[in-house]
Write a protein that binds this DNA or RNA. Sequence first.
DNA 1: TAATTCAAGACTTGTTAAGTCCTGATTTAT
DNA 2: ATAAATCAGGACTTAACAAGTCTTGAATTA
Lengths: 160, 160
Amino acid sequence: MLRLSKLADYATVLLVHLGRHEGLATAAALAVETGVPEPTVAKLLKGLASSGLVLSHRGARGGYRLAGELEKVTVAAVIAAVDGPIAITACCDGRECEHSSLCGLSGQWDVVNDAILSTLNSITLADMGRHAERLPRRGPALAPAATVGAESPSVTEAVS
Amino acid sequence: MLRLSKLADYATVLLVHLGRHEGLATAAALAVETGVPEPTVAKLLKGLASSGLVLSHRGARGGYRLAGELEKVTVAAVIAAVDGPIAITACCDGRECEHSSLCGLSGQWDVVNDAILSTLNSITLADMGRHAERLPRRGPALAPAATVGAESPSVTEAVS
DNA sequence: TAATTCAAGACTTGTTAAGTCCTGATTTAT
DNA sequence: ATAAATCAGGACTTAACAAGTCTTGAATTA
């Protein structure tokens, strides 16, 4: 269904929130402020810490803070940290497809995957946190079909 | 995990296959030729027929054929036909997000979703079938199952 | 020393994709 | 007419995995 995991969604929310936070924020506080269940917040932040996206401090008055800047963290990085490498099909994530001899697609999903990946790499958490003035609520229902070679979708100006 | 459903993957394989097929192809024949389990093929084709992507013919010597041309069908259309509207998060598919007051993202996933959508709209089934000219040539509607599991030649090259 | 907070991972639960099967309708061939 | 082939439609079962919870332990601070 090409759906993002809820965890990745939550992580994005948490990171944007953290990026606006002064000093350290505890998992419990973030849970309250974002509405995400606390155990889930704790679980997510632990993962994000070991991925290097956030820094943690233990003990009393400890907590988390963003490791870098919102402008430097891409959505692709967040998704990869939470869900592992972005791979829209099993054929894309390195392992061999057992039907490869029959399917007749010979790795074309990789092209699609790369196109999506570069799209996600062009959007930062700063973009995600921007309160857009006027959002194109519904995108183009049917864009003219071009060739595969166009793998740099100019989405950057749509966001910024 | 931003993963495509297997059904959408299968559907793409089937449609590309159909696009190269002379005349009608039965669900059973397609199952043999593509390696996708037959009940699944049948289920998929029924759905694709009611979506208008394939045309069906009942009765003896019936079968399916592609409704249009490979160049005219986008990957986005196939995914939408199999899985419904493309929406990477629950916030994207029309319904209102119950956390919208807290999450601080105010619909930015829509922007990401639209970017991905336009990427998928720019890739056609013809693109997906490229680089796959070498297909096992078989007589239509008469594929001996014995030859299916036999060949598994160059497994390493599809990774590229 | 006690309180706070993160670290790590096992465990349970719920959802849904994936796959199967049955019954009926339509078309063709004999 | 009759039989065989094939799709149509939908109900059903299974299995995988995301999502969420809990428990124990380690680090830090007051």
